[in-house]
Amino acid sequence: MISADMEGATGVTWTDDVVPGTEPWQRFRRLFTGDVNAVIAGLCAGGAGDVLVNEAHSAQRNLLLEELDPRARMLTGRHKPLSMMQGIDSGVAGVVFLGYHTGAGCDGVLSHTYLPNQITGVWLDGAPASEGSLNAALAAEYGVPVLLVSGDDLTCAQAREYAPGAELVAVKECVSRYAAICTPPARTAAQLTGAAEAAMARAGRCEPVIGPHRIEVEFDASHLAQAAAIVPTVEHTGVRRVAFDAADMTAAMKAFKVVTAIADSAVQGKYG
Rank of each mutant, 00 (worst) to 15 (best):
T13P: 03
D16Q: 14
D17T: 00
V19Q: 06
P20V: 08
G21F: 00
Q26G: 09
L31F: 10
T33Q: 07
D35R: 02
V36Y: 11
A38T: 12
A41C: 00
G47M: 14
G49H: 11
G49N: 15
V51E: 09
L52D: 14
N54M: 08
A56H: 01
A59Q: 12
R61M: 08
N62Q: 09
L63I: 07
L64R: 08
L65T: 12
A72P: 14
L75K: 13
T76R: 13
R78F: 02
R78C: 05
M85S: 12
G87P: 10
G87H: 01
V96D: 10
G99P: 06
A104H: 06
G108W: 06
L110V: 08
S111R: 01
P116M: 14
G121F: 04
V149Y: 01
E161I: 13
E161V: 13
A163S: 13
P164A: 12
E167F: 11
K172W: 12
R177I: 12
Y178W: 14
T183G: 00
G194W: 06
M200S: 11
A203L: 05
G204M: 14
P208S: 05
I215C: 05
Q226F: 13
A227T: 14
A228G: 13
A229T: 13
R241N: 11
D248M: 07
M253K: 05
A255W: 00
I262C: 09
A266N: 10
A266L: 07
V267G: 00
G272V: 07
